[in-house]
């Protein structure tokens, strides 16, 4: 049993079947990649894991516990954090505040204590600020700490997006195309950060990405989706030689 078990998850939007009886498991501490052509259902799968979609049937198990019907904010509290494909940061807040928001579930201050900002509340803010500074240090965001996120460059915003998820100190980190739209240099940086997160923090990472080079280099296991169906699962080497994967990516004629 892995840290995350997907059991026969089906997701339907009316007549469209986005996910069709998909099952796989993610082992603790690995980098797990989800690949497939556009519209294969990768992001839908991630939405089922983070709770934005509720599967039509099937179940999602986190550490053996059924979380299929849990709301997204409860899953965040369990330690499932996510970086979005289209940047979903809070544009008017500074990098610092965005990361502090990532720590929301780890903090306790309520309205009254926050409004008084005295004693415990202040101490808590300072403590969590320290943790956030560690993330800032880790992702090398020091120079933009107090800049409103909306004014940052695309590459930096992507990095803040990862940072916000990381600030939650997640057990599973869901990264939805963290390198989309980046140049090679930025991609290399991001790949380095992902490896660092994996090695230093031992976080389980679920990665969606289109760059095959990155996927093959980073992943421990790969699942391939095509039209909502799981067509292959295995190590990078197995996936590379899998005829069905080649077929899905390149079309039938090349296989023959």
């Amino acid at each position: 049993m892995g840290i995350l078990d997907i059991k026969s998850v089906t997701l339907r939007f009316g007549g469209v079947v986005a996910l069709d009886h998909v099952s796989f498991e993610v082992k603790e501490g690995e980098i797990f990649s989800l690949i497939g052509p556009n519209g294969a259902g990768k992001t839908s799968m991630l939405n089922c894991i983070s709770g934005l979609y509720r599967p039509t049937s099937g179940s999602v198990l986190f550490k053996g516990e059924d979380i299929t019907n849990l709301k997204p904010h409860k899953r965040a509290a369990l330690g499932i954090a996510r970086a979005f494909q289209n940047i979903e940061l809070f544009p008017h807040l500074s990098v610092l505040d965005n990361l502090m928001l990532g720590r929301h579930v780890r903090m306790k201050t309520g309205v009254l204590a926050g409004g008084l900002y005295w004693g415990k509340a202040q101490k808590e803010e300072v403590e969590h600020r320290k943790k956030v500074e560690e993330v800032i240090d880790f992702l090398e965001l020091e120079h933009v700490r107090n800049t409103p996120v909306g004014t940052l460059s695309y590459g930096l915003q992507k990095r803040v997006e990862v940072g916000r998820a990381l600030a939650l100190e997640p057990e599973i980190l869901l990264l939805d195309e963290p390198m989309a739209g980046m140049n090679n240099e930025e991609k290399e940086d991001m790949a380095r950060y992902i490896i660092d997160i994996h090695e230093e923090k031992k976080t389980t990472i679920i990665l969606i990405e289109h760059d095959m080079g990155v996927i093959m280099d980073l992943s421990n296991h790969i699942a391939v989706l095509d039209f909502g169906k799981l067509i292959a699962y295995g190590t990078p080497k197995e996936i590379q030689n899998n005829p069905r994967v080649i077929e899905a990516y390149l079309g039938e004629e090349h296989v023959g």
């Binding site: 934005l52 904010h73 979903e88 809070f90 309205v111 204590a113 900002y117 808590e124």
Partner: peptide, 27 residues
């Protein structure tokens, strides 16, 4: 004070991006 602490930040997060706020653990 409210808007430099946890709850106030959550309010602003809901204004800016409610879906992301929910995924970050804000009810």
């Amino acid at each position: 004070n409210l808007f430099r602490s946890r709850v106030g930040r959550a309010f602003i997060a809901i204004r800016d991006r409610d879906i992301a706020a929910e995924v970050m653990g804000i009810d």
